[in-house]
Amino acid sequence: MSRFTLAAGALCQRELLLLWRHKTNVLQPLIFYLIVMTLFPLALGHSAKLLARIAPGVAWVAALLSMLLSLENLFAKDHQDGSLEILLLSPQPLPALVLVKIFTHWLVTGLPIVLLTPLMALLMGMPDVSWHYLMLGLLLGTPSLSLVGAIGSALTVGLSSSGVLIALLMLPLYIPVLIFGSGLVVTAAAGLPVAGILAILGALLCLCIALAPLACGFALRVACQ
C-alpha cells in the first residue's frame, strides 16, 4: 500500500469516525432539508398540481441551503484544534487530501439528500419521471455543490461565525448547478432529450473536481497564516 493511500484511507476513516460520534451534527442539515420542504406546501397551498410543478425547484433550493449549512464545520473544527496545520504539513499532496475530506463530507450530507428524493416525491406528489431525473440530477449536482462550497469554507476558516458569510460568497457560484439541475427535471417532464443537460452537469462536476481542491488548498494555506 502506498503512503498516499494509507494517509487518504486514514483521513477518510478519521472523518467518518468523527462524524459517527457526532451523529446529531450530521442529521441537522438533513432535518433542515425535510423541514424546508414541508414549508412550501404550507406557504403555497396544497394543490397537487402546483406542488408537483414546483417540487423539483424547491428540492434543489432546499438541498443547496442544507448543504451550505453543513459546510461551516468542514474545516473550522480542524482549524481550532490544530489538525489543519498537520494536514498542511503532510508530505501528501494537499489538494488530494482536501478532495478526500470533501468526498467524506458529501457522503454524509449530499448522498442522504439524494436518497431522500423518493420520500420527497411522495410528499410533493411528483410524477415518476420527474423524481427519477431529480434524483439523477442531485447525484451529479450535489458533489459539485460540496466542492464549490468547500472553497467558501476554506476561505472563511479562521472566522468565528462564518455560516452566513459562506452562503453570501457561495450562493452566486451555485447558480449554474441549480439552473441545470432543475432544468433537467423540467426538460425530462416535457419529454425532451436530456443527454445534453446530463453531460453539462457531468462537465461541471469534472471542472469542480479538477479546480476546487486546488483553490481550497491554496485558501487553507492562506487562512492558516
Partner: peptide, 27 residues
C-alpha cells in the same frame, strides 16, 4: 512540527489520534 494547538481531536481516542497522525506522515 508540533505547535501550540497540537492537533489532537477531542472526538477520537488516544490511540486513534496517534494512529491517524502517523498515517498522515505515511507510516
Amino acid at each position: 512540527y508540533i505547535g501550540h494547538q497540537a492537533g489532537i481531536k477531542a472526538g477520537l481516542t488516544v490511540k486513534e489520534n496517534i494512529t491517524w497522525l502517523c498515517a498522515l506522515q505515511g507510516g
